[in-house]
Design a protein around this nucleic acid. Structure first.
Lengths: 193, 193
DNA sequence: AAAAACACTTAACATAGGATAAGTTTCCAG
DNA sequence: CTGGAAACTTATCCTATGTTAAGTGTTTTT
């Protein structure tokens, strides 16, 4: 059950057996059925979430009811609502399960205490965030520099293993286009080849 | 000279006088004239940069020579090329001065040693990054949910103090539109009021 | 002070992608 | 197994924004 998360952590820091024990003791397992919410915008959600199995999406709903997917989370990824976690304010985004999920949650207070007791975890989350930040920056420049079709191709290249697990509606939403546009793009590609 | 950066750090962690001394001793002051590069895409740039005075832009140039501004950096902000810093690979972005700048740089090795000697700095950069990450996420959702005009209005609201220091060309580039479009948006707004 | 480069505006035209609507296929829930 | 809801496709029309080009005003360079 803790294999994946411990491997994830071992990428950046090395834990003693006692530290490992301490760490796993604060993890709260939780499973989520497809379509169930982890967070609803407006809730305060002060937990970090590691995805052990399954997939989720982080999304926003605009005034006209349109959903926009900000990001996905697959097994081995971290997710949550960073803003709510940090500030204690209501979450900005919805997070829900796209497939049945097994999650490991860490409460804010316990994580704060962990940072104090084992400062290596400050380092772990710093490095995790640096990588997340780089990915976000790349996403912004892609959204600005590339056409819808180019973004779709890049998505296929970058996440070939996830494409089959996501509906086109969700991929379109992640790319910032309508499902109709994605359908059109796919047709043009087929006609050409 | 170190006032602003020490205040910046004091937002999240408290340093002893000895730690303060240790920290300031690794800072390398550097000034940059308007239009001078801090980083050119392709260079390896393994330094973190604090802006003490002036402003910079982080941008990318596409195949057709179009510049796209990923972000600005004003006094009190941190900047650089996180990807190059972390990976040691050539930088993805250009960073150059929009106004004459006074900067404080920290080399990668010295920062790594600082993390080891004073683990509080792991914490400081973790919190800094959490905030930067939240801002990035918000930028992505704004770019997806809002029209060019709405993004412009939000920019004016969010950064009223910076608007006057930036050319419209640069604001347009940051918003992901052409200067012509920004000009059109401004005209429509004037006509309406 | 003149020349050159740049910033900004305006206008006419082009186009990628949105909106709407209708049809087909796939997926569940009863 | 069946009926209704989603998911996906296709077509038509529409609009926001890009493109090109020309003109004016403002810096920067010489």
């Amino acid at each position: 059950m803790y294999d994946l998360i411990l491997k994830n952590i071992a990428r950046f820091i090395t834990l003693t057996p006692a530290e490992t024990e301490r760490f796993t003791s604060i993890l709260k397992p939780r499973s989520l059925r497809r379509r169930q919410y982890l967070v609803q915008a407006g809730d305060v959600f002060r937990q970090e979430c590691f995805v052990n199995k399954g997939s989720l999406r982080i999304y926003q709903v605009d005034d006209s009811g349109q959903e926009r997917i900000i990001n996905f989370a697959f097994e081995g990824w971290w997710t949550g609502d960073m803003y709510s976690f940090l500030s204690g304010q209501p979450a900005i985004y919805h997070v829900d399960a796209l497939e049945d999920c097994e999650l490991l949650l860490i409460g804010k207070e316990q994580l704060e205490q962990l940072y104090i007791d084992i400062p290596k975890f400050d380092r772990f989350y710093r490095i995790l965030l640096q990588n997340a930040y780089i990915a976000m920056q790349r996403r912004i420049s892609d959204n600005m520099m590339l056409s819808a079709e180019e973004r779709y191709l890049q998505f296929l290249e970058r996440y070939p293993q996830f494409e089959q697990r996501l509906s086109q509606k969700h991929i379109a939403s992640y790319l910032g286009i309508t499902p109709e546009s994605l359908s059109r793009i796919r047709r043009h590609r087929l006609n050409r080849s």
